[in-house]
Design a protein around this nucleic acid. Structure first.
Lengths: 142, 142
DNA sequence: CTCCTAAGTTGGCTTTCCCAACTCACGTTA
DNA sequence: TAACGTGAGTTGGGAAAGCCAACTTAGGAG
């Protein structure tokens, strides 16, 4: 049988390879240049080249020349890329809670003044979206 | 310089390899047996064996024997694993919006009656957590 | 001139991945 | 009791991807 098609698989097709999300993390944190991204992620330069090319081709990042003499570029988030911020927040929260030991290496403060603890809620009612509160609205064969 | 330590990297250390999240998706969807997971993800059986072992070792899944004669097992989510539901929802939402073309292959309905559109909000104030609404509460060297 | 930086490229080696076929323990069917 | 089916992996061999360090190229800076 053919594997299930779903948007999780599709999303991972774009950002699921090693180093892709970490490269994006760096851009979110303001390290937009190749050497910074390489140093801060630990990715090897050749792989990083391929990842960045793919992220640009997928419309997640764009390569922007910020100096002509000498030619220098930086990688910037597109709207599509900025939308991944959610993913990183939630993944970070899971890592904070279940994986990272000791003090958290990165903490965000929300504009309300509180340390950010992200919650995933239903846009319609504002209640938390738990596994139990969801039912499948499309039938799947399997 | 040493790469940045962060919970995103730590999380990806556990669930960032190819097939890990898709295997978890299957368990969330109720396909808890090896052959089902293999068929529905498309992962090769040897790699899937390694991934499932790692997820069990990491405390994300547990292997439960549901029949003694014949010996049969299924993979069940631990609390740690269930907490990844958020990640999948948000990743799926991103894939739905920016990657998947045509009709969405999987749609959830929330208990409030609406089709689920997940939003990531600050637990303290309930407002959406956007990149602009956040400031770093810890200093990082780089 | 020589040195330095940014942004990759290249070569060589190692590790993973993929696929199909095989195993093994048990049931079931005839 | 022999043949067949099923779940859950194992195994072998080739293809692809990843890692590392060194090299390149284009342009300042001293």
């Amino acid at each position: 049988m053919a594997p299930r098609t779903c948007s999780i698989a599709n999303a991972l097709e774009v950002v699921g390879e090693r180093w892709s999300l970490l490269a994006l993390r760096e851009v979110f944190l303001g390290s937009t240049r190749f050497d910074q991204i390489a140093a801060n992620t630990g990715a090897s330069r050749d792989v990083l080249t391929v990842r960045l090319k793919k992220l640009v081709a997928s419309g997640v990042l764009e390569k922007h020349q910020y100096s002509e003499h000498p030619p220098r570029h930086e990688y910037l988030l597109t709207d599509t890329g900025r939308a991944l911020h959610n993913v990183m927040l939630v993944l970070k929260e899971w890592g904070d809670t279940y994986v990272t030991e000791g003090p958290l290496p990165l903490v965000w403060e929300h504009s309300c003044g509180a340390v950010l603890e992200p919650r995933v809620v239903c846009a319609a009612c504002g209640e938390e979206a738990t596994p139990e509160s969801l039912t499948r609205a499309t039938e799947l064969t399997h």
